[in-house]
Design a protein around this nucleic acid. Structure first.
Lengths: 150, 150
DNA sequence: GTCGCTGCAAAGCTTTTGCATTAGA
DNA sequence: TCTAATGCAAAAGCTTTGCAGCGAC
């Protein structure tokens, strides 16, 4: 469980904003789905299972707020909707995504061999890098096998 | 100019599809803006400057077709609209993007130190990688300097 | 009582689709 | 001629916004 923030760690961030029941529900959804890449719709549905009184507008407003507080971050895998993921709080937080072009499964890669590359690029381009996103596209073993045997 | 496809190279791909004036206009727009990351709206505007008779539907349909023919590819930098870029045709075609969080400039990085990482990850996860996208987020030197001096 | 948060519904964007018309080979 | 491509406008997502009401402090 190392590298994953807890509810109480995050709660401390809410000094100038209220941690309302709706926001709490959204937060819990992320904490209980740490390895998912949730769409706004999924966040709404899962939040409603906890707290029947929440609508799309509130979900989107909570997502905006949480992104600003660096609790989550927004991603895009090219399916027309934004997806959101809990931020890891440790230094070794980087991970990448394998996106299967056939079954659309998204697999996480824990590796972070990118730090050296990042340092090089930052120096060369005189650019302060604060974050990166890396997606690999291709075919997972299931889809590849299926293609080969048919 | 190495590594950039020419009009005649691409024209050869149109064996089963018609290279209509509209598609030709869109294609030329990409060839004349090789280092841009154009939105559909920009493609429409630039195409209209060449050929007054083209609408949004045709632009989107051309973009879909060109993506399928691997002439361009779709990207997303998180501003709510898809952006399109001409594909390079050589092997050494990979490049990455530095996205400035302050002025939103997008800088290209030609480097491709990712191949070894890609090989490792493909083996480890039993995944056929066909492509990758890498974005670095941070602050370009202009914005950084501006922040430091204010 | 005040100020921020919420829900609803409407509006705003980008992108897709249906259909009648046009045009290329 | 015959099929594919186009334009227009409508529709279909996803996301944002306006506003009145509600609730926490």
């Amino acid at each position: 469980m190392k590298g994953k923030p807890t509810f109480h760690q995050i709660k401390g961030l809410f000094t100038e904003y209220k941690l309302t029941p709706q926001r709490k529900a959204v937060l819990e959804v992320f904490l209980e789905n740490k390895d998912e890449h949730l769409s706004a719709e999924e966040v709404l549905r899962l939040s409603q299972e906890k707290n029947s009184d929440i609508g799309f507008a509130t979900v989107y407003r909570a997502l905006d707020l949480f992104e600003e507080l660096d609790i989550i971050h927004k991603m895009n895998f090219g399916d027309g909707k934004s997806r959101y993921e809990l931020n890891q709080m440790e230094r070794e937080h980087h991970h990448h995504h394998l996106v299967c072009l056939s079954c659309h499964e998204i697999i996480e890669v824990k590796d972070d061999l990118l730090s050296r590359l990042e340092t090089n690029i930052a120096q060369e381009h005189n650019f302060d890098i604060t974050d990166h996103r890396l997606q690999f596209y291709g075919y997972c073993y299931k889809c590849r096998d299926h293609k080969e045997t048919t």
